[in-house]
Amino acid sequence: MKREILDRLQKARAAKQPTALVTDLTDGRQLLQADGDNLGELSLDAGQQAAVTAAITADRSGPLPEHPNLFVHVYNPPLRLLVVGAVHISQALVPMAQVAGYEVIIIDPRKAWANAERFPSVQLIDDWPDDAMTALAPDHRSAVVVLTHDPKLDDPALGVVLRSPAFYVGALGSRKTHAKRIERLREQGLGDDEISRIHAPIGLAIGAKSPAEIAISIMAQITQVLHGVPPLVKAGQPEAAPREMVG
């Protein structure tokens, strides 16, 4: 590895840019693709270039399927989970997401909820959710969940998040609650394309009832969306009943 490539790679990682290092395993020549720029002595044709881009999107390191001598090492920014609402569900969700490899940040201006006693090992931000969200700038490796059930807090956060490239946006609340939310967001000037990105009612339909179970259903849905897996419906099974009571 040339020092020039190592230094540029470290810079790209520090800037949280999606980055891939391609190595020709027969001779060690390399190409670094960072933030749309290429650096290095290895050149790729259009098909190979597209395969590298696909590897970055899928966050999958390994040899290119059709060119096993070309190894792609994907250095993506870390996964983040931004949680609006220091609520009971969040207390269960935080450790689950941390174990799954997410950097978790909780946003809640209500200090009675967002304090180190309730959340001992996670970053807490007590700014208003729209300001906090703007500062955190959700990227394509960020998932955002809004759990306060309070339009004063949830809606401003959604206003910022739905205009960001966050890969997952989920909002707590029943279908009825969500229908009202959709109307409010339209009044905020959000388009249907943006609003339809919200997963609501939040989480996979696994019959979750307790806060911990709801956290499991949320984490499962985030994982499913992250890996681009279609929703699982088992043959011969009726669709799960809508969870009107949740939230």
Binding site: L6, P78, V94, V99, P120, S121
Partner: peptide, 23 residues
Amino acid sequence: MANGNVTTGKAEDLLAEAARWRD
């Protein structure tokens, strides 16, 4: 979860360490 910190980004640390050793 007490002491629930999860360590990630080891690859970055290793490359930084490699650069340090070269320096």
